[in-house]
Design a protein around this nucleic acid. Structure first.
Lengths: 388, 388
DNA sequence: TCCTTTCCACCGATCATTGAATGAAAACGA
DNA sequence: TCGTTTTCATTCAATGATCGGTGGAAAGGA
């Protein structure tokens, strides 16, 4: 009754609704043709043609020939490819990890212009992480002669309350709890900032530029030092009623003895996480330094077995979550997502434990962007914010 | 490959966008003036005036003088009150249960004009259920002198594929599997029909007229002969990537010995369901006929204990699901939802097992519509379909 | 009575939207 | 090689939605 029908969009003018809608589609799905837009919008082709023509003369989009031609590419006249033109607007993208910090410069299409990544124990000292991020961002601006940013978006490894930006008290990330990192960034950089959970920005990255392209509904799992999920629902990031959606790391697997830092036994991220997997590997690979093991390069049978087993445990939980939300894809990211045996294990468990109706549509995929998913997603988020 | 980023694309024509938008606003916020609409839409007053004029000539809305006048009512010319006109359009609503059949007559605001409920073992013979539903619907039409229905909506106790309307092969509902109930209804009644999962229509009912009012994001749990969930996300029913969302009945609770009809052990609905609770009660209450126990009227300590324990088991699973989707409410419906001890058990388990961020916002509520939730939701669904 | 405030109707200029028809560009098949 | 098929894009004229401006109508207040 009191809910506005459409999100009260600050609509400058109604006359250009279609033009703006078409432009947004071109920007979000890249490399579209006019007929794609016709299918997407349901508008008549002549209307789309007009809108595209206007956008072209305004210089907001570009037109280029279809890349793939030749026999086998389908018959019929090929459509011309449309893309949004990036302006000189630049945004900041930040990915605060547990042991790393990534910072990037994005444009208003959500693409990254440049990026840097450093090792840094952000967990231990969030303030140092914030300072370092701002330093790196200013260096990037200098290098690219960017005088000012439109806005900044960041992902942090903890639950962020949507309205206030408060990092909620959590069992996972003690030192960020109680902070308002968006405010901190705004104070340091003097531009609007938005901060959300790392798995959510990862999902956003995979949605626009990773394995999630073509999926309207999927679950992105960030399996790293903790386990977090990002939800994409109806083609949009979903953060729950108060921004905490995806906090699945402490779902309890009954009967598991592993003690979690939250005090319970058998939490998902106590059973499957980088530290716990490294722990197991340090026993089977005593010659390796446990802290230095690169999970992606291990391909011996014993490691594969361990990762596969971890994937099966993870998949058993994800099966239930898939039953709930019926996604068309399950995208595994984070450091553990790089291991194929783990993904195979997840796939096996989902097939085994989820309902037939669920498994018949869900694809289990590795993150297409690997460890860059979060940074890429932050750039997407920032570009969206810059347009608001 | 291509997915619409913005909401729905089922747009018959773009020319009437404003008209439809204005009409929807008038229907949802009642008693609005033109200037209210100007504020709500951000459109110029002339555009709103134009749209209102068209709606008036079309007879879709009515205009009446401002009720309160006189000193103190504010200065300036009073605006005239606009309201959507209630039409004679009638829709059919059907709730196919396991042991009952409810049928109702709805109007185009989604309200039920009349309804009937009979006991019937729909599970055993779906075709008889379909026939009976159509008979009852025709009787209702006769009683209210309704010559024809705009459309029909129904909920069935099984997963329904969204695009085809096929009731998927399932471990729960063997006799409906492989049927196309929407087609069957269309064939019998000669009007458009839509069928979806019973928990989904229940969620729709609670959203518009039950405990879900005021919540944009909640989970409706139908705890009856099976366990199903309906999701409301961003104020709208969410049915997943292919319509199967909410099939949580066979999530496995590790370590539980109960054998499920699906062949696994420890499935949620093998542990908590009307039959299993009745089974337990038949041991503690040997003087009662197990099949006749009315769960809502039992208030002795032993029954309360059993229901509370069932609620705790259910809540332990729901805690994980709430961690995933971060709802602001958890609405328990179905026959088991009528028992307060069960709800208390769910609340206790959610508080115990879900993350603090999750529990801080989620309210555990009984279904405000009780066993009518599904029928009321079907009426809502039908009114939406009649407008499409 | 006259002024102020608020709401609404009307008008004309612009231009977005539309279906149907036409034109274009490629692969395909003989 | 040359038409055929398939798919994409554009043109055109009719329609009417949108918008700012202007002025009238209906109320309260002085």
């Amino acid at each position: 009754m009191l809910l506005p029908m459409s999100p009260t969009t600050a609509r400058p003018s109604l006359r250009d609704r279609t033009r703006d809608e078409v432009f947004a589609l071109i920007r979000d799905h890249r490399d579209v043709t006019r007929s794609d837009l016709v299918d997407l919008t349901g508008l008549p082709s002549s209307t789309v043609g007009h809108a595209v023509a206007r956008l072209l003369t305004e210089g907001r989009i570009t037109e280029s020939a279809m890349a793939i031609k030749g026999p086998g590419s389908g018959s019929g006249r090929p459509g011309s490819i449309l893309n949004a033109v990036a302006t000189a607007t630049r945004t900041g993208a930040i990915d605060f990890g547990h042991q790393h910090l990534s910072v990037g410069l994005g444009d208003d299409t959500g693409a990254l212009v440049d990026e840097v990544r450093i090792a840094l124990n952000v967990d231990r000292d969030p303030v140092e992480g914030l300072d370092a991020a701002c330093r790196l961002l200013e260096q990037l601006c200098e290098r690219h002669q960017v005088s000012s940013l439109a806005c900044v978006a960041a992902g942090v490894t903890g639950p962020v309350e949507e309205v206030t930006g408060l990092v909620s008290s959590t069992t996972t990330l003690s030192n960020w709890a109680g902070m308002y990192p968006a405010e901190e960034l705004e104070k340091r950089l003097g531009v609007p900032a938005v901060v959300c959970n790392d798995a959510s920005v990862g999902a956003l990255g995979e949605l626009h530029r990773g394995s999630g392209r073509g999926h309207r509904d999927f679950l992105y799992i960030k399996a790293s030092h903790g386990i977090g999920a990002g939800l994409v629902v109806n083609g949009q990031l979903y953060q729950g009623g108060s921004g905490f959606a995806g906090e699945i790391g402490h779902i309890i697997i009954a009967g598991r003895p592993e003690l979690c830092r939250c005090g319970n036994r058998g939490c998902l991220e106590a059973v499957i996480s980088v530290p716990s997997v490294r722990e197991q590997l340090s026993h089977t690979h005593p010659h390796l330094d446990a802290g230095m093991i690169d999970l992606a390069t291990l391909d011996d049978p014993i490691s594969a077995r361990i990762l596969n087993e971890a994937g099966r445990s993870l998949g058993a939980v994800l099966a239930g979550l898939c039953d709930l939300i019926n996604p068309t894809a399950l995208i595994i990211g984070g450091e553990l997502g790089a291991g194929r045996p783990l993904i195979d294990g997840v796939r096996a468990s989902v097939s085994r434990f989820a309902q037939p109706a669920t498994t018949s549509v869900v694809q289990v995929l590795a993150a297409g962007l690997g460890r860059r998913a979060e940074l890429v997603g932050a750039a997407q988020l920032a570009s969206a914010l810059s347009r608001a």
